Simulated assay, not measured.
Amino acid sequence: MKPGPKRSLSEDAIVGAALKLLGERGGDAMSMRSIASEVGVAPNALYTYFPDKAAVLRAVVDRLIGEQSLDVFTDRGVPWRRRVHEVALGLRTRLLDHPGATRLLLGAPMDGPRALAFGERLLDLLTEAGLSEEDAARASYTLIVYLLGSIALEAAELDPTQPAPPEAERVAERRKGFDAVPAEAFPRTAATASVMAAYISTDQYLWGLDRVLDGLTGRRGRS
């Protein structure tokens, strides 16, 4: 029997295989050996491109961040705050398409070329909003922590191997849990159960984003 065609190997192919495995099995089941099997090579072939699994995961994070178009940042015909909203919503949609990989976001540095390009455009937008370069840098970090932290917490409630259910279904399921909280022991929690159940909603995500932006731009001109 003739051997099958030799599969091409590249950084992109390896990252794509890792992303596929994260979606099928989750992070705990992914290894250099499983990635190698997915791309049809011996495990030691991967080390030509990545020194270890951590480096692969960093590249996965960079690809996920890079799926967000940077064109939104530069359209000065759109108010800067609306552009932040569009970027934030686009990032959330793309990352929640890969909940298994999104859980890695808070554990891997964002220092790849796509992440750096994203950060640079965000700095441009914040200086356009009136912040000094130093304040824009601090504000950029604060925004990224809020956005990625919110998305990662939302992804943590999803099955990484299954498509995410509609938002309304997920909120309704969370509400069942809050309805079981004894009101006599936790009266404030019980009284705001509908709000807490919707922590994973788009409304909550944008509510928090606007409060962060209000605080950041309120410091404009002050050291």
Score class of each variant (00 low, 15 high):
residue 150 S to R: 11
residue 115 A to V: 05
residue 133 E to M: 10
residue 153 L to W: 03
residue 139 A to L: 12
residue 118 F to S: 08
residue 133 E to G: 13
residue 146 Y to T: 12
residue 109 P to M: 11
residue 126 L to A: 01
residue 142 T to M: 14
residue 124 D to H: 00
residue 108 A to H: 02
residue 127 T to G: 03
residue 115 A to C: 08
residue 106 L to E: 14
residue 145 V to S: 04
residue 107 G to C: 10
residue 132 S to D: 03
residue 150 S to I: 07
residue 116 L to G: 10
residue 113 P to H: 05
residue 118 F to M: 11
residue 108 A to W: 02
residue 153 L to S: 06
residue 131 L to N: 02
residue 144 I to N: 09
residue 134 E to Y: 08
residue 111 D to P: 07
residue 134 E to S: 11
residue 131 L to S: 03
residue 144 I to R: 09
residue 113 P to E: 08
residue 137 A to R: 05
residue 121 R to P: 06
residue 129 A to R: 00
residue 114 R to P: 01
residue 114 R to I: 00
residue 106 L to W: 03
residue 145 V to G: 07
residue 115 A to N: 03
residue 150 S to Q: 14
residue 131 L to G: 08
residue 143 L to Y: 07
residue 129 A to M: 05
residue 137 A to T: 13
residue 141 Y to T: 10
residue 111 D to K: 05
residue 140 S to F: 00
residue 131 L to Y: 01
residue 110 M to L: 15
residue 146 Y to G: 09
residue 119 G to T: 10
residue 131 L to T: 04
residue 150 S to A: 15
residue 134 E to G: 02
residue 118 F to A: 07
residue 139 A to V: 00
residue 129 A to Y: 00
residue 149 G to A: 09
residue 131 L to Q: 01
residue 145 V to H: 11
residue 155 A to V: 07
residue 135 D to H: 13
residue 136 A to G: 02
residue 137 A to G: 14
residue 117 A to R: 04
residue 112 G to V: 04
residue 109 P to R: 00
residue 141 Y to V: 15
residue 136 A to W: 04
residue 121 R to F: 07
residue 155 A to P: 09
residue 138 R to W: 05
residue 146 Y to I: 08
residue 120 E to H: 15
residue 106 L to G: 14
residue 121 R to M: 13
residue 112 G to F: 14
residue 114 R to K: 10
residue 155 A to Y: 07
residue 116 L to E: 15
residue 146 Y to P: 12
residue 148 L to I: 12
residue 135 D to M: 11
residue 112 G to L: 11
residue 140 S to M: 07
residue 117 A to C: 03
residue 122 L to V: 01
residue 154 E to P: 02
residue 116 L to H: 10
residue 125 L to W: 04
residue 148 L to Y: 14
residue 133 E to D: 15
residue 108 A to C: 15
